[in-house]
Computed example of a mutant assay.
Amino acid sequence: MPTGRRIVLFDLFGVIALHQRPGALAEMAERCDAPEDAFTEAYWTLRPPYDAARQSAPQYWTAVLRRLSRPAGTGTIEQLRLADIDSWSRVDDRMVAYARSLRSRAQVAVLSNIPADHADAFGAAQPWLHHLDHVAFSGRIDVAKPEPAAFHHCVTAMHATPADFLFVDDREENVRAAQAIGMTGHVFTGLADLVEIVNLWLPAGTTSSSPTRGVHKGSTLP
């Protein structure tokens, strides 16, 4: 049963933060003298264990370089690691401001797939994260979306029920996973649609005057 609380649970990259900087993978491929297509395939295929804290950064990058038949020297691994962290460092200032403003109307939390070393760097660069009600990074909780345990972590950590949550993510498979455990879900396409969804979801009398558009078909409301 819902507790009557309202918790907006945000994904990070593609929602509040920006996706990886364009051209970053090509630059990393050049650093290790690998074809961009092959580097990109290895980068993403081998990523899940790193995101979920089942591999360290050196273990992940060693696996990537071995897949590419490139030497896995300590210097190369560290260069790639730092370039990778930098490539995921940008935020959408409008979304940061909106998420922070919501705390006057609801609790606000983040659930993001991000390795532990990335999480450390991102948290240090974005102090606003420390003022949210809960922040769950996959590299710190040892499980990544869309695994149900990632969502259950937030429910347990916030002493809530799934029905208390509106989960916002730009990936439909993650939204469906949240819905499967009983959360309300919204597939993020932009701030205007999100404002409309949040205003509908929050109790009467707590809506904002921000400009809105129609409800996105990826959303489900109770």
Score class of each variant (00 low, 15 high):
A116E: 15
T156D: 13
A177E: 07
H186T: 11
F137K: 11
E147Y: 07
A136W: 01
Q179R: 14
T184Y: 03
R171H: 13
L166C: 08
E172M: 12
A119I: 00
H153N: 09
P115I: 00
A180Y: 01
F122C: 04
F151C: 14
P127L: 15
A124P: 05
F151P: 04
R176E: 10
H131G: 08
H130I: 02
P146F: 07
C154I: 00
I141Q: 04
I181N: 05
S138M: 11
D164R: 05
H186P: 04
I181R: 03
F167V: 02
H152N: 13
V175E: 04
P148V: 12
E147T: 09
R171Y: 11
A149Y: 05
P127E: 15
A150D: 07
A149T: 07
T184A: 02
G123W: 01
V187F: 06
H153D: 07
R176Q: 13
D164A: 09
N174R: 06
P146L: 10
A116R: 15
Q179H: 06
A160N: 02
M158W: 03
T184R: 03
V187K: 04
R176H: 10
H159D: 13
D170L: 04
H152M: 12
D164V: 05
A157P: 11
A116L: 14
V143A: 15
D164Y: 05
A116V: 10
H130W: 09
D117T: 09
D133H: 09
H118Y: 02
H118S: 06
A119Y: 04
V187G: 03
F151A: 11
A150P: 04
A178D: 04
E172F: 09
H131D: 13
L129G: 06
M183D: 01
T156P: 06
P127S: 15
Q179S: 10
A177Y: 03
V135P: 02
V155E: 06
D142A: 15
V187L: 14
F165T: 02
F165V: 06
C154A: 10
D117K: 08
R140P: 00
I114A: 13
L129S: 09
Q179P: 00
N174W: 05
C154P: 02
H130A: 15
A160V: 03
T161S: 15
E173Y: 07
H186I: 07
A163N: 05
F167L: 04
A116K: 14
F165S: 01
G185W: 02
G139T: 08
V143P: 07
G185F: 01
H130L: 14
A124Y: 07
Q126W: 10
P115M: 03
H118Q: 09
T156R: 14
R176V: 00
F122P: 01
T156V: 13
A119Q: 05
L129H: 09
A125G: 08
D133V: 08
N113W: 05
P115A: 10
